[in-house]
């Protein structure tokens, strides 16, 4: 409108509030997980053994690294190093894609074994294993959707930075996208041990 209004701290705070809503969104699935785990500890371990721990670990490293690159990108824009910032954003997007490709292979292997929500094979494996895989697919699926959204967001931000719309003076959009990306990382930090490492 007519009067220029700017409040970077407010913008960041708004983003944090949005991240809270995301945490609660995932917490619904984590509640289901926790209750089911306490009910079927043995079955959950059995289900966990069938997940590929190597792919899971690689994806953890990929996400942690992408979190580093986007954090560095924020520092880069603050120090007005636009080229570095663009490279770091690019690396983040590539890592997001690597994560998704990994996930694709992981899921295809599992689905080819007849393990997917509502499958006959899963039903024969018993109630606990069934619950484990249902929750695994829905939680990881929702997380994957967030990786997709976060990656696209960072792609858009990179383009805006290249066009000079995001500068060292005004970079809240980059900062907020980075915050979203860190949240994706945070969710995975909990998701990984709970699904891949149950013994």
């Amino acid at each position: 409108m007519s009067i220029e209004h700017r409040d970077d701290t407010g913008d960041r705070f708004g983003m944090w509030l949005f991240l809270y809503t995301e945490v609660i969104l995932f917490s619904g699935l984590f509640i289901l997980y926790a209750v089911s785990l306490s009910r079927f500890p043995g079955d959950f371990a059995q289900g966990s053994h069938q997940l590929n721990i190597y792919l899971g670990s690689i994806n953890t490293i990929v996400l942690l690294t992408s979190s580093l690159t986007i954090a560095l990108a924020v520092s880069a824009i603050q120090m007005n190093r636009i080229r570095q910032c663009l490279t770091l954003c690019g690396v983040t997007v590539v890592l997001a894609l690597v994560f998704l490709v990994n996930k694709y292979f992981e899921w295809s292997a599992e689905i080819s074994h007849g393990i997917y929500p509502g499958s006959q094979h899963l039903a024969e494996m018993g109630a606990g294993v069934s619950a484990f895989f249902n929750l695994y697919y829905f939680t990881a699926g929702l997380h994957g959707l967030h990786v997709l959204i976060g990656g696209s967001l960072i792609g858009v931000v990179a383009v805006l930075t290249a066009r000079g719309k995001i500068t060292s003076e005004r970079y809240t959009l980059l900062e907020n996208s980075a915050l979203f990306w860190h949240l994706v990382d945070l969710v995975w930090i909990f998701l990984f041990p709970l699904y891949y490492l149950i013994l």
Binding site: I31, V35, R39, A123, V129, F132, N134, F138
Partner: peptide, 19 residues
């Protein structure tokens, strides 16, 4: 039709009510 809230398939209908 995953059976998230179906007791026969490891779910819990009361958990739905909680959520």
């Amino acid at each position: 039709g995953a059976g998230l809230f179906d007791a026969a398939r490891g779910g819990d209908p009361i958990l739905f009510q909680h959520l």
